[in-house]
Write a protein that binds this DNA or RNA. Structure first.
Lengths: 134, 134
DNA sequence: TCTTGACTTGGAGTCAACTCCAGAGACTAT
DNA sequence: ATAGTCTCTGGAGTTGACTCCAAGTCAAGA
């Protein structure tokens, strides 16, 4: 699979794919005799992993460290486990922050829906809802 | 309230508070006769809003546009509603991406917990779980 | 009043994550 | 075999969001 096809498949640019490889976010990709990248199934699954992790906000550094450890062999299982656990923790926290912000947005949106109808905002212009859900 | 107190209260630096004000992420803060910032309750609630929205990943541009509209008066209710709705959409999508990534992390973590015990990874080294939850 | 420390501004610097570019080599259809 | 299109590399440039700095102002205690 050419870099063009891969970039289209995953919705990232060719430059980004090369950048990911240079940064160690994915291991070196197989090449043709002429030196052109030829992504195989294994390469693709690394790309897919990288795209997924990046889309959630993991840093390039964290992902490339995981890839580095993976290529080092079985002795790095504990290190990899620790890394993944830490990243999960970070994502759970980010998810909480997003949920808290969604609560506030929902509250504000509800008020503005009324405001657009009636022409005026209810209560004070700024006042958080102190949500307590979950 | 001084800028130092506010920065401690919300866990951001004084420089960031000044940057937020310069960028229009919060409206201009009240000043003392000598030109020193003196945050009142209203200022604080803007700061709180900005910190919350930023922590969820809204851009400085989006938040400052909301603040700009807010200071323009009642005719901007529809524009504000539209802006908030769009940001909510973006956050819901980001939340989904995080949840998908959490699924993968959980899958991998479970495998590594076994691997650390047994000394070997089960199944193929790379293979997504194809989660289908929710 | 003097000193010490917090606060001010405008502007420059940093960092992560791309994004773009030039010049050269590879492949494809005629 | 030549035009036209991809792809390559190394390196420079961009963007967003801070972060730091210098030089000066302000304020509270001895």
């Amino acid at each position: 699979m050419t870099i063009k096809e891969v970039s289209e498949k995953y919705g990232i640019t060719q430059d980004t794919l090369r950048f990911y490889e240079r940064s160690g976010l994915i291991p070196p990709v197989k090449r043709t005799a002429g030196g052109i990248r030829d992504y195989g199934p294994e390469d693709l699954s690394w790309v897919e992993l990288a795209v997924c992790m990046r889309s959630a906000g993991l840093t390039v550094e964290a992902i490339s460290e995981y890839v580095r450890l993976s290529r080092l062999g079985d002795e790095t299982f504990p290190a990899r486990l620790q890394l993944l656990t830490k990243q999960r923790e970070a994502l759970l926290e980010q998810k909480k922050r997003i949920e808290a912000t969604l609560d506030r947005l929902n509250y504000k949106i509800a008020r503005y829906e009324v405001a657009v109808e009636t022409g005026k905002l209810t209560w004070e212009p700024e006042e958080p809802p102190q949500s307590q859900n979950k």
